[in-house]
Design a protein around this nucleic acid. Sequence first.
RNA 1: GCCGAUGUGGUGAAAUUGGCAGACACGCUAGGCUUAGGACCUAGUGCUGAAAAGCGUGGGGGUUCGAGUCCCUCCAUCGGCACCA
Length: 844
Amino acid sequence: MSDENYEPATLDAKWQKRWADQKVFEVGPEPKKKKYYVLEMFPYPSGTIHMGHVRNYSIGDVIARYKKAQGYDVLHPMGWDAFGLPAENAAIKNKTHPATWTYKNIEYMRKQFVQMGCLFDWRRELATCTPEYYRWEQLFFIKMLEKGLAYRKLSTVNWCESCNTVLANEQVEDGKCWRCESETTTKELTQWFFKVTEYAEELLSGLEDLKGWPERVVSQQRHWIGKSFGAEAEFVVAEGPMAGTKIAIFTTRPDTIFGVTFVSLAPEHPLTLQLAKAGGREKEVEAFVEKVRKIDKIKRTDANFVKEGVPLGVKVKNPMNGEEVPLYTANFVLTDYGTGAVMAVPAHDERDHAFALKYQLPIREVIVPKISQHDHFAEQLTGDVNEKAFTELGVLTNSDRFSGVESEKAQREIAAYLSQKKLGGPRTQYKLRDWGVSRQRYWGAPIPIIHCNSCGAVPVPEKDLPVTLPEDVEFTGEGASPLAKSAKFLKAPCPKCGKEGVRDTDTMDTFVESSWYYVRFASLKRDVPFDAEEVSKWLPLDQYIGGVEHATMHCLYFRFFHRVLQDLGFLPKSVGREPAKNLLNQGIVYKDGAKMSKSKGNVVDPNSLIAKFGADTTRMFSLFAAPPEKTLEWSDQGVEGSFRFLGRVWRLIQPLAAELKGVPGYSGTHREIVTPEIKKLRAKAHLTIKKVTEDIDRDFHFNAAIASIMELVNEAYGVPKEKLHDVSARSVLRETCEIILRLLNPFAPHTTEELWERIGGAGLLVDQPWLSFDPHAVEAETLTIVVQVNGKLRANLFVAPGTDQKELERLASSDAKVQNFIAGKTVVKTIVVPGKLVNFVVRD
RNA sequence: GCCGAUGUGGUGAAAUUGGCAGACACGCUAGGCUUAGGACCUAGUGCUGAAAAGCGUGGGGGUUCGAGUCCCUCCAUCGGCACCA
């Protein structure tokens, strides 16, 4: 009879339908009980789900089901990060519209998530590519503009001359265009930026509160923000037509300022060309700047990039000693960091050292190692700065009245001096840069701006939102953004003066959409960005789950956006400054020692797994093979193992189902059970409740939790059939089966629902509360005491709980095995850990 | 180079606070059941050793009655960032 066999395919369909019909995971606008908001980072609708998705959403679904059982109102929504480059590439390739491709993928992937048994509140589903979503983003943009949090400036992009188009970093392969394979170059464009730097300090200090975030993510963000202390100093042009021009430099080592032998400007620095003209070196410098510009961004930031530069023919004055040093432009100086100009101290900086050697510039030692009197290796510490830069802190020398002062002190004093002389002063510097959000693409949220010849960049009025994407567009991959080719889209009257203007043809970075979707999910009202009441009930996220690759970019941007939304008044203050209390970064899925990826050809298709083994096996394997945060090594045999286990559960409970149907769970006291095997089974069952609950509560150690359920199942298999005849034995068996099913349900929901129904369980198992354990059942009747001699295990004692120390010592020392090791020796010390261990320390 | 993480059987991994290392599973071995089985059930399985016993958590050192766990040091692997002045 097929009804008796374990057939996952039929079960999957049956229960998925029941859950959907009963709207198991729909929660109202307000939680009635304590709330729990769990969210997996929403997927990009790339076509089909992969094993990384399976892992990510299995983890989330288990947490959602577990917390629901624990009595929370659980918000567990799902949506689609639907804008992005792949859709546009697919459109170019297949001559279709990105929307067609995207919506088709969403349809398919939604079905796949359902087939995995993942439960979401589908009423809250959203796709970021719909106007009803991105209209609010356009509103945020306008408000940010008003607050000065969005602004325009020149920025460099990758450019393909032959396609006449902008390229994303990922469209540049080895310095060549992905489509036509011609060499790429760079181009300066005016682009929109979000002022993340305004929040640098807060984003940094906020990290302190993220106790529930992995340490490595916190540390990566700290480095990304990159706060450093130093000084700004003004070097003034000494002579020529531009004499008196101030050049501000930033340095983290003001203590080395007396060692400056030249100053370098970034090639893109606004003064570079002007000063070169003044110095009569226009031609050389122009050629150099042009050369640097030709090299694409990726290559230029390569570590092995050769350090080069040219003199501008101008001298600048050191603010500390008035010394005149030559001014250079150098390719390793970055325009985006600090002031775009650096003072060069070859003796104490490796890059400057290399540069000085190449162009035969002087090297002047101004820092010597701090030598303590007891340091016999002092001579070895003092290297020759002509050979190698000495980059550590030390004591100043050749530094006028600062000679002999220690570096740290000198840094403060020199900065203070600069500040007093109004030639600079102490500065705090961040590596964090403002977020460039303009993308020269079609498939994104249009930037709601109209450019007018007389009024400039004018925001689209709120009542005219959304600015929707035009449909009459062809996708060729060449030329300007498709938005610029749509006449209907492009032309619009200026909202200020009414004259004909031109719309901004850029769209926003897709990271903008993913910076606020978690807020949108929390609001069922859709005619406002979000309903303050609803949102304040659900936020912040109790648990956020996603790949570690988002540790900096996404996880920083959404922390930024959360604050911005609050400061713009869209989000109530009551939800707190941080969007997510806890973050879980799940590990990558590996196969054959490499990350699963299409290009490596080592992918496993979840579809075929679900078809062959069912959703539960697929979920179980991805949760059992490794703890969530670790790399998951794929193993076909491991999948078989999970399937075998579920079959074992089936074969344990299914044959008993009819018999157990009318039987109540055990209700007597634990002590009353007379059959030792049955007593042991019940003890194990309750111990398992304890263990599984603790394992899940402790960083979601699902693998350990599943292992203990396996132990319980093994224990149940071991009970001899003939012991099950009396009434209380059957009640314990019933109770045990219920425990197995309830504990296993979050991991293998379909199989357990079916068995629950078959043993006559009431309602849906997913709606049943989590179990608490009977403390009497968990209490051990005999304790195992470890007996050690000199820390080595020699015997086990089995004693009643509460046996006193003296008695333990007596029993332990009289044990025959222990006697072998202590007889004829002196017991120096005896350590007794009550309930655990006795250790004899002996000497010959 | 910097930052972070991880090193435990043939394999994936367990081990809340320092207290029986290797739970659970895969694989392997043997047996049972079976016409057959890559199904299922049972038992065994860290290494050396006939045994007694000894050795075992990347290497070395330390603290401790006792260390996978704490401290120092070195090595390896992985991930992220990388001309940041």
